[in-house]
Design a binder for these strands. Structure first.
Length: 293
DNA sequence: AAACGGTTCAACCGCACTTTG
DNA sequence: ACAAAGTGCGGTTGAACCGTT
């Protein structure tokens, strides 16, 4: 694929934007009801900038829905939680914080949150206590980060499903209305059903091998797990009545790498089950940031 | 007041992915 | 199916800012 010429190769301006340039860009986009093609925008708007620079300026600074100002404690908390699940996927994290850009969140993480976690003895990459995250050699630890994030993501979602099912009319004998206060689990369910969760759902579905499932359920039974034979039903849309069983199955699968041919890596997830998962699920349910302060 | 070092954050860079013809 | 164009994304940079000496 041919690379498009960079700004400096075309004699275009670089560096900080002036207020005049901002004005030109904003008025052009307003006038045309959108940016159209970023590549042709600078020429049409009369800007000596490359399209890429215009796009960045617009999406990170000039967009009308940008929320300026310092991050609130609950926003910081959400960034930390999402980072534990998604890793350095700033755009995905930003999509869950209306008005915040990926660049802003990335800067927040690198300048504030990362240091705060380190000062509290938490590895900002693994979200585990530094002593435990250094248990394995660096190479192995790094290689399992993505897997850990997936495991944390999956478990958080299952926890959320379990909580939701507990609150659902099916389990609510008193027929009381569903709790109106949104719990943290709502975040995970919301994200899970969004585009962000889509990528994980795809991976997970490919991992759902019925043969493995059947085989391992019997293994679970032999190990004294409380599962039964009904848990082999649909996984993608878990009925409330099967949530607990499915939770057990998925956790078993996750922490024993069911469906993964690389048996040598099975300890990666076992390692994360006690610490990372606990850290993830033990996030305070209110806006209390005291665990970081 | 000046020098210095640390921090912040807007902007750039280059790669990867998606769309289009 | 292929290549080019367009776009998104994450890592990095460097100027501006701020606090300390």
């Amino acid at each position: 694929m041919g690379r498009t010429p960079c700004c400096d190769k075309m004699g275009l301006k670089k560096g900080p934007w002036t207020s005049e340039e901002d004005e030109v860009l904003v008025s052009y986009i307003k006038k045309n009801g959108g940016h159209g093609s970023w590549r042709s925008l600078p020429k049409l708007a009369g800007l000596l900038r490359c399209g890429k620079s215009c796009r960045l300026r617009w999406t990170n600074y000039l967009r009308p829905d940008i929320k300026r100002g310092p991050f609130k404690p609950d926003e910081e908390k959400l960034v930390i939680q999402l980072h534990a699940i998604l890793g350095n996927r700033w755009a995905a994290i930003a999509s869950q914080l209306p008005g915040r850009t990926d660049n802003e969140i990335k800067n927040l993480w690198n300048t504030h949150l990362k240091k705060r976690l380190i000062s509290k003895g938490i590895d900002p990459q693994t979200h585990e206590p530094i002593s435990s995250s250094h248990y394995y050699p660096i190479s192995k630890s790094n290689s399992s980060i993505a897997t850990r994030h997936m495991a944390q993501w999956e478990s958080a979602r299952l926890e959320a499903e379990a909580r939701l099912s507990k609150d659902s009319p099916l389990f609510n004998n008193n027929n009381t209305p569903l709790a109106s206060n949104k719990s943290d689990s709502d975040y995970f369910l919301k994200i899970w059903n969004s585009d962000v969760g889509e990528s994980f759902r795809v991976v997970r579905k490919s991992d759902e091998d019925d043969d493995d499932k059947t085989r391992c359920i019997s293994s679970m039974s032999q190990e004294g797990s409380s599962c039964n034979n009904n848990k082999c039903g649909s996984v993608s849309a878990t009925p409330a009545s099967n949530v607990k069983e499915d939770f057990e199955w998925r956790n078993y699968k996750l922490f024993n790498h069911v469906g993964c041919d690389d048996s040598s890596s099975s300890n990666d997830l076992e390692d994360s089950s006690d610490t990372a998962l606990q850290l993830l699920l033990d996030f305070p349910s209110n806006n209390d940031m005291s665990f970081l302060e």
